[in-house]
Design a protein around this nucleic acid. Structure first.
Length: 224
DNA sequence: GCGACAG
DNA sequence: ATCTTGTCGC
């Protein structure tokens, strides 16, 4: 698939923060009316000095339509708030290999629930010009009330007096997931669409399957 | 200065 | 994210 190269990746943390502050101004959020038919889930795993990105495409019936992956040396450390600079360049290489045109992309990490409103989901949404949703397993910033213990219970993640995400209990008695809009989608639509892709597991299928393949493909690489 | 801190 | 087996609980 095509994408816009908005900047270089090999830059200092200070410049990376400047870029985030600049790109944040380009974000747009809309209510999704159209029925979603094809979605993609993205996840990465690491081994040795390499990073492996996997993109899984699913249709509305959870059938896998396409899977692509890309492996390359990691060139950026993990710094809270700058995750996109570590995983973004590897994800983009996998994205180049993707042939299916999807409606929405789920990322492992936050969207606007970020210090500069530019978590990896929002950041990459601008590059690929697609609607994106951030699905994180823990919070980066913000405050929230612990949601009820039952599946479906939720509360809002707030920061600077604004609702930036939803803390959603996807299964009974399990840690909640943090859903936040990435790009071209609003909070309400993000929750609705994410819920439609959650079955019997904590994570929505696109993200869950991407993670599964990330581990599987990594093992194949280590044993051959 | 202290605590927090996506993956 | 990653190093790692069994085990408690729904």
């Amino acid at each position: 698939m095509l994408y816009k190269k908005l900047h270089d990746w090999n830059i200092s943390p200070k410049k990376a923060i400047d870029i985030q502050s600049t790109l944040k101004k380009l974000l747009k959020f809309e209510k999704i009316e159209k029925e979603i038919s094809l979605v993609a889930g993205v996840d990465l795993s690491f081994f040795k000095e390499y990073g492996l990105a996997v993109i899984v495409v699913l249709d509305y019936d959870f059938n896998i339509r396409e899977i692509v992956h890309h492996v390359e040396k990691v060139s950026y450390p993990y710094i809270p708030g700058l995750l996109a600079f570590r995983e973004g360049p590897i994800f983009i290489k996998a994205w180049e290999k993707l042939k299916t045109d999807v409606d929405i992309v789920f990322f492992d990490g936050h969207g606007i629930a970020h210090p500069r409103k530019l978590g990896i989901a929002s950041h990459m949404g601008l590059w690929i010009e697609k609607a994106t949703i951030g699905i994180a397993k823990s919070k980066l910033i913000g405050n929230y009330k612990e949601p009820g213990k039952k599946r479906g219970n939720f509360s809002y993640l707030e920061y600077d007096g604004e609702k930036i995400g939803i803390v959603y209990r996807s299964r009974n008695n399990v840690k909640p997931i943090f859903i936040s809009p990435g790009y071209l989608i609003d909070l309400e639509s993000s929750l609705k669409i994410t819920k439609s892709f959650i079955t019997k597991y904590r994570l929505p299928e696109p993200t869950r399957l991407a993670h599964l393949y990330t581990q599987k493909i990594k093992k194949e690489h280590l044993s051959s």
